[in-house]
Design a protein around this nucleic acid. Structure first.
Lengths: 230, 230
DNA sequence: AATCGTATTATGGCGTACCAGATACTGTAG
DNA sequence: CTACAGTATCTGGTACGCCATAATACGATT
């Protein structure tokens, strides 16, 4: 029997361990603001809320710690990591470097499929903005960059970007709501696609950098506006 | 009593939790080849070898998993991650982008302190090559890049680079032993320093990219030479 | 003898209970 | 009102036990 066929009929099992489920739940809770930055994450409370044992909770906390979403105070325990403005800027900068790199590679590949896939995501973003569905904007933006990286087989860089992105996720949800972002965001992204279509590597690189830089500027404004009030 | 004074007399405690100690030990063991890629990491065996409980071992394994040093096969358990050649190339590529970025920033900063610090590390590398002390070469190389990133306050990018570097660490120890690397490596790095001294951002970027590209090429040669024999 | 089913073993996943040490809180005595 | 002692809280860490699953060995049946 061929391997491919065997895979085809393979029975899908949940395969997710309790740990992974709990991990997703807690990450979700942090990202969407159920747990606020600075909140203490008391192990035994989490056990109760998640309905799992301390063993699982501890492993989850360790994992989130290595993702940078949770910080561990010595002799004090884990808290939701604070996002300081400088760190956020650094994250945007790194994303710029990596997304620029991916965009350049896409341009150099000169493949119509890439352009088509990117345009599909971009259309999704425009539609989501039109429908005022901010969750969908995030999803589609994510898929835009996902194709940008994976079409040129840069899954490691994609992993790095994802890892960093969760740390600024609540910033993202604020920046996309900003005035004019609904017009400028897609415009900048279409410039990336245009450059890729032209096979203009340098242009694609610059366009990707510009887009992230714009997001970073908005994030900085949002963050510094919020800090004093806090 | 002033806070500063209180800090000054504060008794320095190990501060490292048992978990962190165990984490370092296991990571060390993987990186320096005590555990080979593909080896199974049986929890209860590790408990015995490390002298700690399963809880700690499990947390350590989770952590290493998120670092990419350990892979978890479903219904099978953790093994030491295999490093495939494509992934290694991607890691080098990312390092190139980030180190290039940092080098450019250093050049734009035009600070004599940065140049001095870099030159000190570079001298260390040359001496270590002369003494044939490969471990010291790695340490000094690491400190070279550490200053490159931290002098311009890019600690997040430094963290990313470190995270990626452990995954290719045994490759690094092979590449630096390569013929001629003892001459070419420091030469390329001195080009980075020269560009930074001149304040030539683009030149520093290119020099850093070149250095990583050279390392990547050597790694590829080493890896593809070893694979068939395996 | 070949094959099929079953018992055993190894191992991870998960839970519970317990203890030690650090910290924060609280109430009482002077 | 302050100082101090006692207490509650919480994490770090350990030990042990149970269950599910996968692989392997073994034995029975045809």
């Amino acid at each position: 029997m061929s391997g491919a066929l065997k895979d085809a009929i393979r029975v899908e099992r949940p395969a997710k361990t309790l740990r992974e489920l709990a991990l997703d739940k807690v990450r979700e809770a942090i990202v969407n603001g159920y747990f606020r930055p600075g909140d203490r994450l008391v192990e035994r409370d989490l056990c109760a809320q998640l309905g799992v044992s301390r063993t699982v909770v501890r492993e989850v906390l360790r994992h989130l710690e290595s993702e940078g979403l949770v910080a561990n105070l010595p002799n004090k325990g884990p808290i939701v990591a604070q996002l300081d403005i400088d760190e956020a800027k650094q994250i945007y900068e790194i994303r710029g470097a990596l997304e620029g790199m991916a965009a350049r590679l896409c341009a150099e590949r000169r493949s119509p499929e890439i352009v088509a896939a990117l345009e599909e995501s971009l259309a999704g973003i425009r539609n989501s903005y039109r429908d005022n569905d901010m969750a969908a904007v995030l999803t589609n933006t994510s898929s835009f960059y996902h194709t940008l990286f994976t079409m040129v087989d840069r899954n490691v860089a994609w992993g790095v970007v994802n890892l960093l992105t969760v740390r600024i996720n609540h910033l993202r949800s604020m920046t996309i709501k900003t005035e004019r972002r609904g017009i400028e965001g897609p415009l900048q992204m279409s410039k990336i696609v245009d450059a890729i279509r032209r096979g203009d590597g340098e242009g694609a690189y610059q366009a990707a950098m510009d887009h992230v830089a714009a997001a970073s500027a908005i994030a900085e404004a949002v963050l510094s506006a919020k800090k004093p009030a806090d």
